[in-house]
């Protein structure tokens, strides 16, 4: 078809430039992946446990994480799990770095809001592997196209919830900031973002969960990690392999979820009403 042809031409003309543009992502991803896989497992485990503690401040969640990671190691899924965690970390980071500013723009301009909202709606109704097609056509197989596909898939919630969080800031509080002579930037930094932060964190949480789901799908285009054994299991009907890796994915999903949710809750501590 004509569109397909056009697409191929575009890829031929710009593919290399684009690949160079996205090369830093590859470097970052490989660096984190190597760090997690090559360091002694006990140090990695301690580091992850510390991170979970800092986020959740809950011994239960920390203990659960350690036990899960031990089991993952025991059943020989350590390296794949680390690849997946590295991938989710990088994708989430990119989604947050891109998504928060877009959310801010949407919150400040009703026009931007009207333009971007339908795009997000469309992105969220599209089946996840549809994203893989154009990405593969441009970038081929590999890590970077994987990251791009995952980020595109996982970015809507962080954008939406940043927008929502800022728009939910009470008008009277904003008026007070205005009355004291705040500039637009000061209002954003000192009032809107801090008050939107719990909502933004809920967006980060959703983005992490969606990254994780998509990382598994992206194993189809050569992303390493827990998705690959699952894919292999499907193709060859290895039941145990599928279940084991599936459980590992569930385990780290729960760890991510509990940690970020607990962190989001702690951010709202000061909002708990003591007086009515």
């Amino acid at each position: 078809m004509a569109i397909d042809g056009g697409f191929r031409e575009f890829t031929r003309a710009y593919g290399e430039t684009l690949e160079n543009l996205f090369h830093p992502i590859q470097i970052l991803l490989v660096f984190i992946e190597d760090l997690l896989i090559d360091s002694p497992w006990i140090i990695v485990m301690a580091g992850l446990a510390l991170l979970v503690w800092l986020l959740s401040r809950s011994w239960k969640v920390v203990a659960g994480s350690i036990i899960s990671l031990m089991l993952i190691g025991y059943f020989g899924m350590w390296d794949d799990t680390m690849s997946t965690i590295a991938m989710v970390a990088v994708c989430t980071l990119i989604a947050v770095v891109l998504g928060i500013p877009i959310g801010i723009v949407m919150a400040r301009s009703d026009r931007a809001n009207a333009i971007i909202t339908p795009i997000l709606d469309m992105m969220q109704t599209m089946p996840s592997f549809v994203y893989l097609i154009p990405v593969v056509m441009i970038f081929g197989l590999g890590k970077v196209p994987g990251v791009i596909a995952v980020v595109i898939y996982a970015i809507p919630p962080i954008i939406r919830l940043t927008n929502l969080g800022i728009r939910q800031v009470p008008a009277d509080v904003l008026e007070a900031a205005e009355a004291f002579g705040s500039s637009g930037g000061q209002k954003l930094r000192d009032v809107q973002l801090p008050l939107a932060l719990p909502t933004i964190m809920a967006g980060v949480n959703q983005t992490i969960m969606m990254s994780l789901a998509m990382v598994v799908v992206a194993s189809m285009i050569g992303v390493k990690g827990l998705g690959q054994p699952v894919l292999q299991a499907i193709n060859n009907q290895y039941f145990t392999l599928g279940v084991m890796n599936g459980l590992a994915i569930v385990a780290i999903a729960i760890i991510f979820d509990r940690s970020t949710q607990a962190y989001g809750k702690r951010l709202q501590k000061h909002l708990e009403a003591v007086h009515g």
Binding site: D172, A176, A177, F180, G181
Partner: peptide
């Protein structure tokens, strides 16, 4: 902005305090 900062201050019916700032941090705003 300068006029608001230097010449005026306002107190609101529903207080309109900054919920994420302590009493001291509200007062220094």
């Amino acid at each position: 902005r300068d006029f608001r900062r230097q010449k005026t201050a306002m107190v609101f019916q529903k207080f309109a305090l900054f919920p994420h700032r302590t009493v001291l941090e509200n007062t220094t705003y």
